[in-house]
Simulated assay, not measured.
Amino acid sequence: MTDHIQISTQDRVTFLTIARPDKKNAITQDMYAAMAKAIEDYDRTDDARAFIITGEGDMFTAGNDLQDFSTDDSGDAEPPVARFLRAVRDCEKPLIAAVNGPAIGVGLTMLLHCDLVYAARSATFGAPFVKLGLVPEAASSLLLPAAVGMAVANDILLAGRTLTADEAVSFGLVARVFADDELASAVQKIGQHVAASAPNALKFSKQLIRGNRTEIEQQMEDEAKLFVAQLKSPDFRESVAAMMEKRQPVYA
């Protein structure tokens, strides 16, 4: 378990806060395990009927802790990150994201599986996988083009474009934007409204809206195989080394 994931429940709304501000809320494997367990517990109990994910401070999350990933040799059959992404994908109850600042990498891709996404005015959205010598994850290579169109998805995934909060709304990644100091209270009210709604109606409506998930599951498997291979590649090692040495990567 880790102190960097804070969980609390009030009035049937569970709040998960990514709380590692000194590292821009970068997520380690231990943090992924804690996040996965929190979502799994939420989905199987009646203690809460809405679940809000946010970040501490002025950052949602900078994505994966690359140093943690580059040194992981646990050999888990299902690594914690995979467990977390499966939990987000398969959760039958409403998941809400309050994006309080930059959402990078998995900070963006997890949003594609959330049911309600709201952002602070200062929030930005990016997925620099190619820059890091990696490939998209969480079925983002399928879901992002479906959400924003192929041209914009390629601009994000291949060219490294970062979206502003207003752009994210215009492209359909975010439902609404709030002033930075209003986001938390606004999303809490939305969470309370969702939690007070008929639970089975929410569950079945979510099933209908999401539709058949077979293609998404297969895409996640295909991405994961390539992602793991790239983690062991010279490209990824060079990208991490360049980041540590504060220089531009040089790829062979």
Rank of each mutant, 00 (worst) to 15 (best):
Leu66Pro: 01
Arg12Glu: 15
Leu85Tyr: 11
Ala165Val: 07
Ser233Ile: 07
Ala146His: 07
Met244Gln: 15
Arg83Val: 04
Ala153Ile: 01
Val130Gly: 04
Glu245Leu: 12
Thr71Ser: 11
Met31Asp: 13
Thr109Arg: 02
Arg247Asp: 14
Gln230Trp: 02
Ile96Trp: 01
Gln219Trp: 02
Ser140His: 08
Ser70Phe: 02
Met244Trp: 01
Ser122Arg: 11
Val240Thr: 04
Ile156Trp: 01
Phe125Thr: 04
Phe69Asn: 00
Met35Thr: 07
Ala201Val: 13
Arg83Gln: 11
His193Phe: 06
Gly107Arg: 04
Glu245Asp: 14
Ala242Arg: 04
Ala229Met: 05
Val194Cys: 14
Asp73Met: 14
Thr124Tyr: 09
Asp155Asn: 12
Met35Glu: 02
Glu78Lys: 12
Glu182Trp: 03
Ala196Glu: 12
Val99Ala: 05
Asp43Gly: 10
Ala147Met: 09
Lys37Ile: 00
Phe204Thr: 15
Phe171Lys: 02
Pro102Cys: 10
Leu16Lys: 04
Asn100Tyr: 06
Arg161Phe: 02
Pro21His: 10
Ala120Pro: 10
Lys131Val: 03
Met31Asn: 08
Leu183Val: 04
Val177Phe: 05
Ile52Ala: 07
Val240Arg: 02
Gln207Pro: 03
Asp155Arg: 13
Pro21Asp: 15
Arg49Glu: 14
Ala38Gln: 04
Asp65Tyr: 07
Ile18Lys: 02
Val81Met: 14
Glu245Ile: 00
Leu226Pro: 06
Pro199Glu: 03
His113Gly: 00
Gln67Tyr: 13
Asp41Arg: 10
Ser122Ile: 10
Gly191Pro: 06
Ala36Lys: 05
Glu217Pro: 00
Ile209Thr: 06
Ala33His: 13
Thr17Ser: 12
Val174Gln: 01
Glu245Asn: 11
Met31Ile: 09
Ser170Gly: 01
Val250Pro: 04
Ala147Cys: 15
Asn154Thr: 06
Ala127Arg: 06
Ser170Thr: 09
Leu183Ala: 03
Leu132Val: 03
Ala138Ile: 03
Asp115Pro: 03
Asp73Tyr: 13
Glu182His: 13
Ala229His: 08
Phe129Asp: 07
Ala252Val: 09
Arg176Met: 15
Ala139Gly: 13
Ser185Pro: 00
Ala19Gly: 07
Phe69Val: 08
Ser122Leu: 08
Arg176Ala: 13
Ala196Thr: 04
Met1Asn: 11
Leu66Val: 12
Ala153Lys: 00
Leu173Asp: 01
Gly75Pro: 03
Asp30Val: 01
Arg210Ile: 09
Asp235Ser: 13
Thr61Arg: 00
Gln230Asp: 13
Glu245Ala: 15
Ala242Gln: 07
Phe236Leu: 05
Ala26Arg: 05
Gly191Ile: 04
Asn25Trp: 05
Asp30His: 10
Tyr251His: 06
Gln67Thr: 13
Pro199Phe: 02
Ile104Lys: 07
Ala82Leu: 08
His193Lys: 12
Asp68Val: 09
Asp22Ser: 15
Gly133Cys: 09
Phe178Pro: 04
Met1Leu: 08
Ala97Trp: 01
Phe129Cys: 01
Tyr32Cys: 10
Asp47Leu: 12
Thr164Ala: 02
Leu202Ile: 02
Phe125Arg: 02
Val117Met: 01
